[in-house]
């Protein structure tokens, strides 16, 4: 599809990476594919045919870790960045990767384009947080103030 594609595939522990890598290889038959993996998965993926390179990435636990990961991704100058899920954190990561095209792909080959715009990704994260906090508050209020009438409620903890 794209002779000069430099494709970064970001790992997911939950998804079948073999299937996702196969999808990437089909989409970019002549592209250079780099698989970004945490240290514990590197050994198991040594023989992944589709990847021309494996890069170890540290799990992100802080803003500093996220910035370091973003810098690493940008250094590789990916033309395409693929994630296994279209989750908000991965959308954000895709947006800061510097890639021109970003997408999430699942085992069945469904491609979901992700915005490469950092502003849109940040807006998405903010909206999501807002929605999440609103849901949390709603549930808290119901659990706190609405009781179940059963007639038997021993106060046990």
């Amino acid at each position: 599809m794209n002779d000069e594609a430099n494709v970064g595939v970001f790992y997911s522990a939950g998804r079948d990476l073999d299937a996702v890598m196969r999808q990437a290889a089909v989409r970019f038959p002549d592209g250079r594919i780099t698989l970004l993996l945490p240290p514990e998965l590197v050994e198991a993926r040594r023989n992944t045919d589709a990847s021309t390179e494996i890069i170890t990435v540290r799990p992100v636990r802080s803003v500093g870790g996220f910035v370091r990961l973003a810098r690493l991704l940008r250094r590789h100058r990916f033309s395409d960045f693929i994630t296994c899920y279209p989750s908000r954190p991965l959308r954000l990561l895709a947006a800061v990767s510097g890639a021109r095209r970003c997408a999430s792909v699942d085992e069945q080959g469904r491609w979901t384009p992700l915005s490469a715009s950092l502003a849109l990704a940040l807006l998405g994260v903010a909206c999501n947080e807002l929605r999440g906090h609103a849901a949390w508050l709603r549930v808290w209020a119901v659990v706190r103030f609405q009781r179940v009438r059963t007639g038997e409620q021993p106060p046990r903890r």
Binding site: R88, C127, N128, L130, G132
Partner: peptide, 12 residues
């Protein structure tokens, strides 16, 4: 709610 609350708060 104590267990699932933190999960709900981030919207995903």
């Amino acid at each position: 709610f104590e267990a699932l609350g933190p999960d709900l708060r981030h919207g995903e």
